[in-house]
């Protein structure tokens, strides 16, 4: 069975679209970090960093665990290694053409209807 991966990939694309979140990913590639450690090199407030981390969590790129007062974050690289991510932009470009083809086919079908009724 083929599962439509689009909503998941949308979340990954959205997560990667912001430079601050890419910087967070880069930091986490060095290992687990707590939220303040992530926020300070980016000159970001704690709530702002939390917001970005939430976006990364929704894309399943980051996992967070709470130990006492610390929010420890670690990178989950699997979604980035996913082969479907690699072909996603190619797929979207072709899908745009095929949507135009859907519209054209609808027109062609309605062009034909009066003719077939006459037969």
């Amino acid at each position: 069975m083929v599962v439509d991966q689009s909503p998941r990939l949308d979340r990954v694309f959205h997560a990667l679209a912001h430079p601050a979140r890419r910087a967070i990913i880069r930091q986490l590639s060095g290992g687990e970090r707590n939220l303040s450690e992530l926020a300070s090199p980016l000159r970001m407030t704690f709530p702002a960093a939390t917001k970005h981390v939430r976006v990364l969590e929704r894309a399943d790129l980051v996992r967070r665990r709470v130990v006492g007062r610390q929010h420890l974050c670690r990178l989950r690289a699997a979604p980035l290694r996913d082969a479907t991510l690699w072909t996603e932009q190619f797929r979207r470009n072709w899908e745009a053409r095929f949507r135009a083809l859907d519209e054209l086919l609808d027109e062609m079908k309605s062009e034909e209807q009066p003719r077939s009724r006459r037969r």
Partner: peptide, 22 residues
């Protein structure tokens, strides 16, 4: 595609139609 293959074929390989989706 929600159309018979005769029409999909025509849309894919007829220049006037191709201009619409390429």
């Amino acid at each position: 595609f929600n159309a018979p293959r005769r029409l999909v074929w025509e849309a894919m390989f007829t220049p006037d139609r191709m201009r619409r989706w390429m």
